[in-house]
């Protein structure tokens, strides 16, 4: 892969990291969901571009899953859940947005150093995709740690997964990427449908996981 097609792949992967940063500083749930849909759209473009550039038509399936499920269906469903639960006002963050962003920058630097040092021999695209996707994974993890609200934790989890899909598609000719992305989508769909809609909503007035925490531990 040379010249323009390399640059486009690179641009799209970088766009994914950028949207991950945008996720970090959203403080309203609706905005958070919109940015997530944007990230899923960037992922769709990135995977579709890889499918075209690598000549791997099966990756179009993964791209389609990203577009339909993650850019449209799941954000839509979460929108409705948020509206019904009336929790659209604010998202709490731990440690403030400035600190979170700084930590995010640190994590991106870390993943660049770790991956680029370890892979001098690998194909240039695969290695930069790996570095960028590790950044997305770590930023997703950071988001899950800094958010208390269950909806934003799920969004963090899904953005983590976007990073993994990017890594899988960037590795030239990796088998089972489609199957893996389907398996992940099933996981997410089950969780969104099951735990949220039926159970947490059934039992809790709020989906703030701090409320869940009050029930934890030893009840002696």
């Amino acid at each position: 892969m040379h010249g323009l097609s390399f640059d486009i792949a690179h641009l799209l992967a970088g766009g994914l990291v950028l949207t991950s940063f945008m996720l970090l500083y959203q403080d309203r749930l609706y905005a958070l969901l919109n940015v997530f849909a944007l990230q899923a759209f960037v992922l769709f473009l990135s995977v579709a571009w890889q499918a075209y550039a690598q000549g791997a038509p099966h990756l179009y399936v993964t791209a389609a899953i990203a577009l339909v499920l993650k850019a449209i269906v799941i954000p839509g469903a979460l929108h409705r859940i948020v509206a019904r639960l009336g929790i659209h006002r604010e998202v709490e963050t731990i440690g403030g947005i400035g600190l979170t962003m700084l930590a995010g920058i640190g994590l991106v630097a870390l993943s660049m150093v770790v991956i680029l040092r370890a892979t001098p021999a690998a194909a240039p695209l695969a290695r930069e995709d790996l570095a960028l996707s590790l950044s997305v994974v770590l930023l997703g993890l950071l988001m899950m740690v800094t958010r208390r609200n269950a909806v934003s934790q799920v969004v963090g989890f899904m953005s983590m997964e976007n990073g993994l899909i990017l890594a899988g598609t960037g590795a030239q000719g990796m088998p089972l990427v489609v199957e893996i992305s389907i398996a992940f989508s099933v996981l997410i769909a089950f969780i969104v449908i099951g735990i949220f809609l039926f159970q947490i909503r059934e039992r809790f007035d709020t989906v703030d996981s701090r409320v869940l925490d009050t029930f934890r531990g030893e009840r002696s």
Partner: peptide, 16 residues
């Protein structure tokens, strides 16, 4: 309450 909290925690940590 407890079962759902346990399942949620398991999902988050298991998912990570």
């Amino acid at each position: 309450h407890q079962a759902i909290e346990a399942a949620w925690k398991y999902f988050i940590l298991g998912g990570v």
